[in-house]
């Protein structure tokens, strides 16, 4: 059955309509959870507000469980779902730079659009920065093309690398996440801050 677009149940244009609807859901949930506030986002790194950690991991786990159950019921063919490719060097370097950008700028791309939609001027400036950053990457592409393409590992699943089933890995991740949630709530008590 799913993914609908790959199995040609919906057309290319309907897919774009769905993209828009899914985006509305995405933006709505982000804003409702408080991702439109950079100080709230940054809170996770100082322990006073762990909303990012909680939403992020709960979402990843929900999505993962959903996908596994959908596959189990035969509703979704997981082999047709896009799995992000892994290029080890560029993933790590990109992640490090993004982490720096996160703590300096206070947003990530998705949340900055969300913040901008409710009038945060710093979010608009952050988005302007994003455009410059992407353009810079494109402009200087030959300089880091080699690094960008280095250590291509294909699209491996973590579970396969560890030699365990997807389900078992999901269970482990759930347990790890719950421990982190517990620790985060302790930290929130220790570093109390007002709501932003």
């Amino acid at each position: 059955m799913g993914p609908l677009i790959v199995n040609e149940i919906i057309t290319e244009n309907t897919n774009l309509l769905f993209a828009f609807l899914i985006g509305i859901g995405f933006g709505f949930v982000l804003e409702q959870s408080g991702f439109s506030s950079s100080r709230k986002l940054a809170g996770v790194f100082y322990g006073y507000d762990a909303v990012v950690l909680k939403v992020f991991f709960t979402a990843a786990i929900t999505g993962m469980l959903g996908l596994l159950f959908f596959s189990l019921f035969g509703w979704l063919d997981l082999s047709l779902v896009y799995i992000n490719p892994t290029f080890l060097s560029s993933s790590i370097l990109g992640g490090v730079i993004m982490g720096a950008g996160f703590i300096i700028g206070g947003y990530c791309p998705g949340t900055s659009f969300c913040g901008a939609s409710i009038g945060k001027i710093d979010a608009f400036v952050f988005i302007a920065g994003l455009f410059i950053g992407v353009a810079l990457f494109g402009w200087g592409f030959p300089l880091w093309e080699k690094l960008y393409l280095a250590k291509d590992l294909g699209d491996p699943k973590v579970s396969r690398l560890l030699g365990i089933s997807d389900g078992l890995f999901a269970l482990l991740l759930i347990l790890v996440a719950l421990v982190m949630f517990w620790a985060a709530e302790l930290a929130e008590k220790k570093f109390p801050r007002e709501e932003y």
């Binding site: 469980l65 189990l72 089933s165 389900g167 999901a170 269970l171």
Partner: peptide, 11 residues
């Protein structure tokens, strides 16, 4: 849910 998905063989 995690226990169920871990116990059931993959489809």
């Amino acid at each position: 849910l995690g226990l169920i998905i871990a116990a059931i063989p993959q489809n």
